[in-house]
Design a protein around this nucleic acid. Structure first.
Length: 182
DNA sequence: ACCGCGATGCCCT
DNA sequence: GGGCATCGCGGTA
């Protein structure tokens, strides 16, 4: 799911204005097994509740006292997995989107959108069939620890100047980690 | 390239 | 009370 989202457009409509950006960097969180996921161990709390619900909904959480982060709930009811939106190539008039907190700020996304269905109007994804190019996979950003889950390659991105962090140099050449053309 | 720090508030033990 | 799926800035190499 994370891989397939790359290259698609994330659209936010509010107050008669339409803001959008192209998805270029996302991460998969595979709870309940994933020790880095909020839903690790099947933790079902007020915060994680949305992830246990139907797919195609927004999971929006607040972190570090000032940032909202947007996720897409990806799995059937009862399976708390999601894809975190980490960076967009901004559309016209859209501010910097190089990081999950910047994405939500630029598109006007906050906790009021937690649990909303990802469909027009409001917040949705469209596929404009644009070529996507090479996909790189790396460990997830900001995930602490050295265990199996912390090291897993669950961050998916395309090479772009708008990433939250550049692709590691050793991955840049064509000889880099295997990637999948569309 | 890395490392530290402050801002700032919720989440969970 | 400690940690956090962050960001921007400044410091040391």
């Amino acid at each position: 799911m994370a891989r397939d989202l790359l290259g698609k457009l994330l659209v936010r409509e509010s107050d008669g204005q339409r803001l959008w950006g192209r998805l270029i960097e996302v991460e998969a969180y595979l709870g309940p097994d994933d020790l880095a996921a909020h839903s690790k161990g099947g933790r079902r709390t007020a915060r994680t509740e949305v992830m246990f619900g139907a797919p195609g909904h927004a999971y929006v959480y607040f972190t570090y006292g000032m940032h909202w982060c947007l996720n897409f709930v990806t799995r059937e009811e009862g399976v708390p997995q999601a894809v975190l939106v980490r960076a967009l190539e901004p559309g016209p008039g859209v501010g910097r989107c190089g990081g999950p907190g910047l994405v939500t700020r630029a598109l006007g996304i906050d906790g009021a959108l937690n649990g909303v269905p990802l469909r027009p109007p409001g917040l949705y994804v469209v596929d404009d069939q644009a070529p996507r190019g090479r996909v790189y996979v790396t460990p997830r950003i900001g995930v602490q620890g050295t265990g199996r889950w912390e090291k897993r390659l669950l961050r998916y991105c395309v090479d772009s100047p708008y990433l939250s962090r550049p692709i590691p140099k050793r991955l840049r050449p064509a000889a880099g980690r295997r990637v999948e053309p569309r």
